[in-house]
Design a protein around this nucleic acid. Sequence first.
DNA 1: ACCCAGGCATTGG
DNA 2: CCAATGCATGGG
Length: 266
Amino acid sequence: MLLELPEPYDFELSTERFRVFGTDLANLWHDGALHRVVGGREVRIAAAPGGVEVEPLDEETRSAVEKLLGAEFELEPFVAWSAGQSVLAELVPRLSGFRPPLAPEPFESLVTSITAQQVSLFAAVAIRNRLIERYGVRGAHAFAFPTRARIACATEQELVEVGFSRRKAEYVVGLARAEIELEELAWLDDDEVRARLTALRGLGPWTAEWFLARHLARPRAWPAGDLALRKAAILFYGCDAYELGPRLDPFQNLSAHYLLTGMRTP
DNA sequence: ACCCAGGCATTGG
DNA sequence: CCAATGCATGGG
C-alpha cells in the first residue's frame, strides 16, 4: 500500500541517519527497506513513486509511519525561504527530497539521547542495540524499542552490563520511574518542555532540544550545544552555532537537519 | 597505548 | 558564579 508524502521525497537520503552510524535494531535497514515494529507488529517501509510503500498498512500504522518519516514538517515554506539564504540556497537543492525522520515515541527519544550524550554515535548505537536486544521485543527482523514499563523494573546494574556508565544507568532507570507523563509534553510550548525535561536528572539542554527537534518537530528547536552542529556552523558559516541560531529563525530545526546531513553527504 | 566523540552532574575555587 | 573532573564505549 502506498503512503503518500509531498514531492519531492528521497526515501534513501531521508533515512540515511538510520544506517550511517551502524545498524539500528529498532529502525532496521534490511533488504532495501526500513523495518520497524509499530503497535507490536513489524512494518516494512520501502521507496515508492509519490511516497513510500508500507506493508502492512492500517490506520494506526499510517499515522505512526507518517510520524516516523517526518510527514508533519512543512518543507515548502522552508525551501522557499532557504532560496534567499547564503548557505542553504546551495545546500537545500543539493539535498532535494530530504525530509528528516523523527523519533515517534517520547521515551525512546529521550533514552536514545541519553545514550548518545558525550560519546560517539557509533558507540551510542552499539550500546543502544544491546539495550534493545535485552529488553525489546523481537519482530520479524527489527526489534520494538523497550517500553518505559520494562525499563522501570530493570536494575541499574543490568544497564551497566549492556554498556551504560553507572551515571547514565541511573538517568535511564530514573526517567522510566519519574513522575512525568511524557505524552503530555506535546501540549506545552517549547520553553515549558525545556523546563520540564531539564528538571529531570540526566536531561540537560542538549537532550531537551533534540526532544523538541526530533520528537515534537518544533520548527525553532536548535541544539546549539551539539558538537556536530557546532562543527557544521563553523564549516558552512564560519561562526558559532549559538550565533547562527537566530539567523535561521523560524526554521532552525529543518536547518539543523539539513546542515548535519549536508556535512555527511558529499 | 593513547585521544576523541552529536553531555551532564558534581565538586572545588 | 565559572572551571575542572569523571564517566564507559567504539573507532582512529
